[in-house]
Simulated assay, not measured.
Amino acid sequence: MTQLDLGLKLSTRRTRKREFLDEMRRVVPWLKLISLIEPHYPKGKTGRPPFPVATMLHIHFMQQWFGLSDAAMEEALYDVPLYREFAGLDGGITRLPDESTILRFRHLLEAHGLAEQILAVVNEILCAKGLLLKAGSAVDATLIPAPSSTKNGSGTRDPEMQSTQKGGNWYFGMKAHIGVDAESGLVHTVIGTAANVHDINAAEALLHGEEADVYADGGYQGIEKRCEGGSVRWHVAMRPGRRRKLDLSDRVDAIYDQIERLKAGVRAKVEHPFRGLKRQFGYTKTRYRGLKKNTDQITTLFALGNLWMARKALLTM
């Protein structure tokens, strides 16, 4: 029996995935991003005409939101009507983008450094709407594991990834360093490094230059000495071991503890983008080989994450 025989209208059911795509369709600045990509997009003067930039951009973003590889994205377009509808491929289209087409579009974005420009366009719009302020920043980094297996074509691990130790455990992969707006928690700067690069070495590069105060956890102890003479005030958390020794019955120690609580309340904003990256978008392991490719993907995810975190405010404007 078909859907019509049963009297069902499954294509119009308001599932969570459909709601999510409808919201993102409304908040992503499609026209600005398309105009950013079009100068670099092939014109297709011979052979089959290329798919529209809008179609490929919709597909590329669905890859990021749902953690799909190029091959998996191709199969999903055949299997999931909702994906074809979102990409504008449900109106008498006789062919769908294959794995190679999806791969070439991603390589186009990588070759022209468009991931950083996409983040810049998104943040420009958020600034114009008063959602991204520049009075203060918070900085932090998170480990992104990479496949450690050598069962691949080259027989080696990714040479640009490194190992580091955290909490008594060893990790192989990279780090995503971010600078976020201290008020809204929206990401304004992204840097990717090997996992063994200390957080403090990337700290200054995470500032946009207009902030007056910067908040960081205990891993950034000593950054004030590196930035002596700078125009920003660093508010770095006390090391946990030292804080545990505070005697809260002592008036001075109690004041120090309260200051740490206040700093932690601001610094916590930097955890929200990491939550979106790893839980909302399911990005828990690198997909490609090389820092550049993975950093581009992470930058795109943070740009989309900014829109996702600000979507309620954007939808009401």
Score class of each variant (00 low, 15 high):
residue 82 L to C: 00
residue 83 Y to T: 00
residue 83 Y to M: 03
residue 83 Y to K: 01
residue 83 Y to Q: 01
residue 83 Y to V: 00
residue 83 Y to G: 01
residue 83 Y to W: 05
residue 84 R to Q: 01
residue 85 E to N: 02
residue 85 E to L: 00
residue 86 F to I: 00
residue 86 F to L: 01
residue 86 F to N: 07
residue 87 A to V: 01
residue 87 A to W: 01
residue 88 G to P: 05
residue 89 L to Y: 05
residue 89 L to K: 04
residue 90 D to F: 01
residue 91 G to M: 07
residue 92 G to V: 01
residue 92 G to W: 02
residue 92 G to H: 00
residue 92 G to F: 02
residue 93 I to F: 11
residue 94 T to K: 06
residue 94 T to D: 10
residue 94 T to L: 08
residue 95 R to V: 01
residue 95 R to M: 03
residue 95 R to T: 03
residue 95 R to L: 03
residue 95 R to A: 06
residue 95 R to W: 09
residue 96 L to G: 10
residue 96 L to H: 08
residue 96 L to Q: 04
residue 97 P to F: 05
residue 98 D to L: 01
residue 98 D to I: 00
residue 98 D to H: 07
residue 98 D to A: 03
residue 99 E to K: 12
residue 99 E to V: 00
residue 100 S to W: 13
residue 100 S to C: 09
residue 101 T to Y: 06
residue 101 T to Q: 11
residue 101 T to G: 12
residue 102 I to R: 08
residue 102 I to T: 03
residue 102 I to H: 12
residue 102 I to N: 11
residue 102 I to V: 02
residue 102 I to P: 14
residue 103 L to Q: 14
residue 103 L to D: 15
residue 103 L to K: 09
residue 104 R to Q: 14
residue 104 R to Y: 12
residue 105 F to R: 01
residue 105 F to A: 03
residue 105 F to P: 12
residue 105 F to V: 02
residue 106 R to S: 13
residue 106 R to D: 09
residue 107 H to G: 03
residue 107 H to N: 11
residue 107 H to Y: 11
residue 107 H to K: 11
residue 108 L to H: 05
residue 110 E to Q: 09
residue 110 E to L: 09
residue 111 A to C: 07
residue 111 A to E: 15
residue 111 A to S: 15
residue 111 A to Y: 10
residue 111 A to G: 12
residue 112 H to T: 05
residue 112 H to C: 06
residue 112 H to K: 11
residue 112 H to D: 14
residue 112 H to A: 10
residue 112 H to Q: 13
residue 113 G to Y: 08
residue 113 G to R: 03
residue 114 L to H: 04
residue 114 L to F: 02
residue 114 L to T: 04
residue 114 L to C: 06
residue 115 A to I: 10
residue 116 E to I: 02
residue 116 E to F: 05
residue 116 E to Y: 04
residue 117 Q to G: 03
residue 118 I to P: 02
residue 118 I to N: 06
residue 118 I to G: 03
residue 118 I to M: 14
residue 119 L to N: 07
residue 120 A to V: 01
residue 120 A to P: 00
residue 120 A to E: 13
residue 121 V to G: 13
residue 121 V to Y: 09
residue 121 V to L: 15
residue 122 V to H: 11
residue 122 V to D: 15
residue 122 V to F: 12
residue 122 V to P: 15
residue 123 N to R: 10
residue 123 N to G: 11
residue 123 N to F: 08
residue 123 N to Q: 12
residue 123 N to E: 13
residue 123 N to C: 14
residue 124 E to F: 10
residue 125 I to A: 15
residue 125 I to H: 15
residue 126 L to N: 08
residue 126 L to W: 05
residue 127 C to A: 13
residue 127 C to L: 07
residue 127 C to I: 07
residue 127 C to G: 13
residue 128 A to C: 10
residue 129 K to W: 13
residue 129 K to G: 14
residue 130 G to E: 11
residue 130 G to F: 11
residue 131 L to I: 07
residue 131 L to P: 11
residue 132 L to C: 07
residue 132 L to P: 05
residue 132 L to K: 05
residue 132 L to V: 06
residue 133 L to C: 09
residue 133 L to R: 14
residue 134 K to Y: 09
residue 134 K to N: 10
residue 134 K to A: 12
residue 135 A to M: 04
residue 135 A to S: 13
